[in-house]
Design a binder for these strands. Structure first.
Lengths: 228, 228
DNA sequence: TCTTTTCGATAGTAAAACTATCATATTAGA
DNA sequence: TCTAATATGATAGTTTTACTATCGAAAAGA
């Protein structure tokens, strides 16, 4: 065996039937990532997806109640995956500052496709998260969805980075606010760089994630090191 | 005349017919703000709006091509209004630091209803901007919409604040990125405080805008004053 | 007064967002 | 290996959304 299989476990059921467990489920995931990336979430429909996977609308509905829950699933998966990656890249790094710096690199980096998760293209998923992730919580159903645990993966990642902030400066009064701000900015700045360049100094190139990371580190370390 | 009439001019035509100029148009604006605030943008439809204003779907379509353009109009109006307000509150303030501080107060403050714009409830509009504003640009049509000038008001406000940053520290390398980050955070943090409280230290109360302003000032002045 | 504009009323279409039913293929358990 | 449960495909149908078209009456402007 030359590939390690990684199963990302989510703490909720945005799905009706676990798509990881069947071939059709994996096709639904793989092709929905492709289609949402291509069409955008608003233009994406279960009908189009069904055509793409040579199946039927009814079959897709057996896995997900609606396209919003499918997006919740994809975005949660991404956060769980990132949390994993952050842990992996900060493990055994003794210096608290260096740990936070590497964590920021991980959350800004554009996804790299991993052979361990063949049915998920992390790079396409990362593009989806940039333009669609905030739509999972910016709804009137946010409180119900929160009760169902749909944002646990995001909160956990946020909390892990907030802990790193407190390790550097235990007196910093806004660790979670600072981290949630830069986690959102990590996407916005890349999006602005590409589509609304006058809103940022980051250039809209392949390297905009790296540039964004530099800006965010500036910002975070300035805040954490601030004299009061 | 004991009220001053203020006409906010937008630099684009998200509308087909200027809603400010007719009574029906003003009713469309007033009731759409009420309805979007109440139902959220996804559940809001022109059919429901038409019922609310005792008119017809066809009549609403004579003012706006679709509900997305109506949202663009409302959000642009809000940014133009805020830009106005920022200018008003920073005018004649000599100190650059104090100017930026007051500007941050203005962009975080929950709207106060103004008798000069009777058909627009600024407080309801502010709630809409918090939960719906990012949806105006997070679409596949963002580049076309940008060409049509739909984001000019937002960019102008961003640029005005970025200038204040440069006045404080002409060498700060990311004035626009910093301002666009905190302008988005000004909404996110209030939203998180109310719905996803574990993502922030801001408390979900009536005073969360003020608390958010304090956090954002911390952040901005730390960044701008950073030694390099 | 005449004419243009505005609005309401009505009707209709295409697509989206589902739900229901039935037959068949596959799989799992006994 | 037989049987029963499950998964999928095929088909069809409903309701709602997002529009478009047409017409006539009222109102407003010249």
């Amino acid at each position: 065996m030359n590939t390690t299989s990684i199963k990302i476990n989510l703490n909720h059921k945005a799905y009706l039937r676990d798509p990881e467990l069947t071939e059709l489920g994996q096709r639904i995931i793989r092709e929905s990532i492709r289609l949402i990336d291509e069409l955008g979430f608003e233009q994406f429909t279960f009908r189009k997806l069904a055509t793409e996977i040579n199946s039927t609308e009814a079959s897709v509905y057996r896995y997900f109640e609606n396209k919003h829950k499918l997006l919740v699933y994809l975005v949660s998966w991404h956060w769980a995956w990132l949390d994993h990656f952050v842990l992996f890249h900060t493990n055994n790094v003794a210096d608290a500052r260096e740990r936070l710096s590497r964590a920021i690199d991980v959350i800004t980096a554009s996804g790299t496709d991993n052979p361990a998760t063949l049915h998920i293209s992390e790079s396409a998923l990362h593009r989806i998260v940039i333009s669609e992730a905030s739509k999972v919580y910016l709804t009137k159903e946010v409180d119900d969805d929160n009760k169902d645990g749909y944002f646990l993966e995001y909160k956990r990642l946020c909390h892990h980075l907030a802990e790193m902030v407190l390790r550097i400066n235990p007196d910093y009064p806004y660790p979670h606010a600072l981290i949630s701000t830069i986690m959102e900015a990590a996407h916005q700045q890349v999006f602005f760089a590409e589509h609304l360049p006058s809103l940022t100094e980051i250039k809209g190139t392949q390297r905009s994630p790296e540039e964004t990371a530099i800006f965010l580190k500036h910002l975070v370390f300035a805040a954490v090191d601030q004299k009061r």
